[in-house]
């Protein structure tokens, strides 16, 4: 984990990579999941692995839906997003000893998840350079969904989603990361600031610019 982060120190979030902020924001009180993560860390340190695994299942349930949403928006491939989320949870559990409650658990977990997603994107781009592309699975699944009760409405919705995806892909790295974390990951600008190391006001500016650009690209008032 630390190698990944240090490798991206040169330009922290230009490519959307997540790096630790210089100083975490002071948290008034520990959130429930942060408290649970601290308890799990204690259990692991005492060697009570079965109990730790049982408690960790609670964290998985609490963060899974948000995690798949973020991973799917990054990777646009269900199987790969599935694996990325699994990897992130396994990595979190195996490195829980290094977790410090100065960071909210959500921030720590999201950083691990997004770094994993970025690595997968990079690996995929490398693969696509060397191998001929496979069949368009997304198009097939869209066609399959169109065989439902109201094919026309579903096709329209799918088309709208693909336009949205294309527009999000046209955002630059920082804007995309900030926008996705706030809108799809339900993070506050303060949390995004802690995840990315960007100033909170910079996060707000990126967020606003991303929204303005998206409105322009999707045909609304910019």
């Amino acid at each position: 984990m630390s190698e990944h982060l240090s490798a991206r120190q040169a330009d922290p979030v230009a490519s959307g990579a997540i790096v630790p902020a210089v100083a975490p924001h002071a948290q008034p009180a520990l959130s429930d999941d942060t408290r649970l993560a601290v308890e799990i860390r204690g259990l692991v340190e005492r060697g009570e692995m079965d109990e730790a695994r049982d408690r960790f299942a609670g964290l998985v349930v609490a963060h899974q839906r948000r995690a798949v949403r973020i991973a799917y928006q990054y990777l646009r491939d269900a199987a790969e997003a599935d694996e990325a989320v699994q990897d992130a949870f396994v990595k979190v559990f195996s490195h829980i000893g290094s977790y410090r409650e100065a960071w909210p658990f959500e921030v720590w977990f999201t950083r691990i998840l997004i770094n994993g997603c970025l690595d997968r994107r990079k690996a995929r781009m490398r693969r696509e350079r060397w191998f001929a592309p496979a069949e368009d699975v997304e198009a097939q699944s869209t066609a399959a969904r169109a065989n439902g009760p109201d094919p026309e409405a579903q096709l329209l919705a799918a088309e709208q989603r693909s336009r949205l995806t294309a527009a999000i892909d046209r955002l630059d790295g920082r804007q995309r990361t900030v926008f996705m974390l706030c809108h799809f990951g339900d993070c506050t600008p303060r949390e995004v600031s802690a995840m990315t190391g960007l100033n909170e006001s910079t996060v707000r500016v990126h967020l606003f610019r991303a929204a303005r650009k998206l409105r322009g690209l999707l045909g609304g008032a910019p």
């Binding site: 839906r65 798949v68 949403r69 799917y72 928006q73 269900a78 599935d82 969904r145 919705a157 709208q160 989603r161 949205l164 809108h183 799809f184 929204a211 998206l214 409105r215 999707l218 609304g220």
Partner: peptide
């Protein structure tokens, strides 16, 4: 606009996952 984007993404992810 932003609620629409959010709802689209939620619907898409829920359909897949």
């Amino acid at each position: 606009f932003l609620d629409g984007v959010h709802a689209d993404v939620l619907a898409e992810t829920d359909a897949v996952f």
